[in-house]
Design a protein around this nucleic acid. Sequence first.
DNA 1: CGAGCAATTGAGACAAGTCAAAGCTGGTGG
DNA 2: CCACCAGCTTTGACTTGTCTCAATTGCTCG
Lengths: 224, 224
Amino acid sequence: MCGVRATSVCNAIEDAHLGRLAAVAVTIEADPGKAFIEEGESADNFFNITAGTAKLFKLLPDGRRQITGFAGAGHFLGLAVSDTYAFSAEAVDKVRYCRFSRRRLRGLLDDFPAMEKRLLELATNELVAAQEQMLLLGRKTALERLASFLVVRSRLGGPCTPRRTRVTLPMTRSDIADYLGLTIETVSRTMTKLRADKLIELPGPHDVVLRDLANLERIAGGLM
Amino acid sequence: MCGVRATSVCNAIEDAHLGRLAAVAVTIEADPGKAFIEEGESADNFFNITAGTAKLFKLLPDGRRQITGFAGAGHFLGLAVSDTYAFSAEAVDKVRYCRFSRRRLRGLLDDFPAMEKRLLELATNELVAAQEQMLLLGRKTALERLASFLVVRSRLGGPCTPRRTRVTLPMTRSDIADYLGLTIETVSRTMTKLRADKLIELPGPHDVVLRDLANLERIAGGLM
DNA sequence: CGAGCAATTGAGACAAGTCAAAGCTGGTGG
DNA sequence: CCACCAGCTTTGACTTGTCTCAATTGCTCG
């Protein structure tokens, strides 16, 4: 039950009705930096990431940015109650995704309640992650935020897969900062501190080796 | 379409199948301070608030608390993917709520896909609110956070009802602080500043009169 | 090899936190 | 009926974690 396909929207119907899904889906590639959802625009499409990583974010008028999440393979974007998107999305690295017409998807949902069920499950998952992120943003220190981020990254691919001690961060320091509610400089300094404390190694800006996962998890949980 | 019943879980089935829902629901009253969901405990029940206000929160081991939301009449609690709750809930004032067995609700959902649809809509709404709160916690100043809080409170009861210029805050300063990622003292000082700037009046600690909603909204949106 | 961007490091500033002391207020019992 | 207590809120003085501004280093790719 673990792995990318288990968390995919398509999963619930792919098995039974692959054909009808394929008929309304368009596969698209987006290069790094390419924006494919703009906050406030008409929410006509659903998206399902199949490769790469996208960042989801909201902006304030003066340019302050909060990244609300990173969406990897299997992630699903575009749930919206109102008829406009509540956030923007941009490719971090090379991203491949399926695009569905929202109108047509509605028809599919009526025919296949199982897919509705799956969507609810996904939304619930997102909600739990969002609450965890609120705890991080509202109450954790810079050190705890970065440790949390690295620990979560080490568990990508589901709670069942073994944790990776080598983590790849496709995003920039600026993205990490905007995700953790910090500045670039604080992210950089905190990375350096974690390295000085022998908790991680930094072979390059986009690679982190977690040398002491147990202590990183302690810090992430708020036990300095 | 606006009002409490429109955002209630029950709504989708009440009209058609009120009987079966009532059969599995238990109505309960909780006094202020009473905890009725504990993070980490077995998620056996769903809850639907029908009166009063509850606070939902997560704790760190050292006692730091993040309130992830306030749930008023019509709100729905207990969505969980895993079999344990991801947050705790406690009554702010006198709360009345319906409790459903999760196991039995599952049966209802299978029979009434419309209810599943309604739940997805609710979860999506929550998700949008959660993203907005992440922006607040990660990127807004104390003044912007409090202004945002007051503006949202003035719109309780849905986007369709006229905004109230008199807002009642059933929760304490400590609750507001833990919701906005601030301290009690900062909340208090910021309230005082808003009053000094003639944006609000404070007849009592639990009542606020919004004297200049337009400017409060400007501040809330990040335009200091 | 150098231009351009990302990341790191440093020094000083400031928003919000901490610690401490009054004020207020609502409920209770003498 | 009112004084007192306990808890909440406000205000004040000081500290600090993180931000801002600025300079330097390192990497990637024409």
